[in-house]
C-alpha cells in the first residue's frame, strides 16, 4: 500500500445567518456543540484532514486537508464575496430545516460562487434535524439538490448526525 498523498483544498460554508454553519464546522473539527448562538464576522478558518480517500485517477490513497472557510452571512453585493470565494474547490450550502425562508436565500450566493469557481463541487445540507420532524422541508431540499445536481444530507450539529458524512462526501467529489 503506497503512502497516502497529502493535499489541501479550500471549502466555503455558505448560508444565511443562524442556519448552523459554524456549529457544523465546530462539530466536525472539534466534536463539540454550543447551544449559544455566536454570529460570525468575516471568515473563521479551521481545518481537518479527511481520508484516506482513493484517488481513482492515480489509484493512490489521499489524505485531504479541508481548509474550512466558515463565512458570515453575506449579501451577493458584498465587495468581499468574490475575494472570499476565490480558489474554493467546494462549498457546503447550509439550510435550516426549521426556517423554510432560508431555502430561498442561498440562491443569491450560488451564482457568484459558481461564477468565481465554475468547477467547484457542492453539497446541500438541511441542518437541525433534531428540531424538525416535518418531512416537507426535507422533500423540498432533496428537490433543490436534484436541480443543482449535487448530493444532499440532513444533519444535526447538536447530535453530530451525518456531519462527518457531509464533509466526506464533499471531499470525495472534489477528488
Amino acid at each position: 500500500m503506497p503512502e497516502p498523498t497529502k493535499i489541501s483544498k479550500k471549502v466555503c460554508m455558505l448560508g444565511t445567518f443562524g442556519v448552523g454553519k459554524s456549529s457544523l464546522v465546530r462539530q466536525f473539527v472539534y466534536q463539540k456543540f454550543d447551544e449559544s448562538y455566536l454570529s460570525t464576522i468575516g471568515v473563521q478558518l479551521s481545518h481537518k484532514a479527511v481520508g484516506p480517500l482513493l484517488d481513482k485517477k492515480t489509484n493512490r490513497p489521499v489524505h485531504m486537508n479541508l481548509i474550512l472557510w466558515d463565512l458570515a452571512h453575506l449579501e451577493k453585493f458584498d465587495p468581499v464575496v468574490k475575494n472570499y470565494f476565490h480558489g474554493a474547490h467546494g462549498a457546503v450550502i447550509v439550510l435550516d430545516l426549521t426556517r423554510p425562508q432560508t431555502f430561498r436565500e442561498y440562491e443569491n450566493l450560488i451564482k457568484p460562487f459558481f461564477e468565481t469557481n465554475p468547477e467547484s463541487k457542492l453539497v446541500l445540507v438541511g441542518n437541525k434535524t433534531d428540531l424538525s420532524a416535518d418531512d416537507h422541508p426535507r422533500t423540498q431540499i432533496a428537490e433543490m439538490a436534484a436541480n443543482l445536481n449535487c448530493p444532499c444530507h440532513f444533519t444535526s450539529a447538536r447530535t453530530g448526525e451525518n456531519v462527518e458524512l457531509v464533509f466526506q462526501t464533499l471531499a470525495e467529489n472534489i477528488l
Binding site: 483544498k9 479550500k10 471568515v43 486537508n65
Partner: peptide
C-alpha cells in the same frame, strides 16, 4: 497561512 490555499494564482 492556510487561508492562502486556493490563492496561488494571485
Amino acid at each position: 497561512f492556510p487561508e492562502l490555499i486556493g490563492a496561488e494564482d494571485k
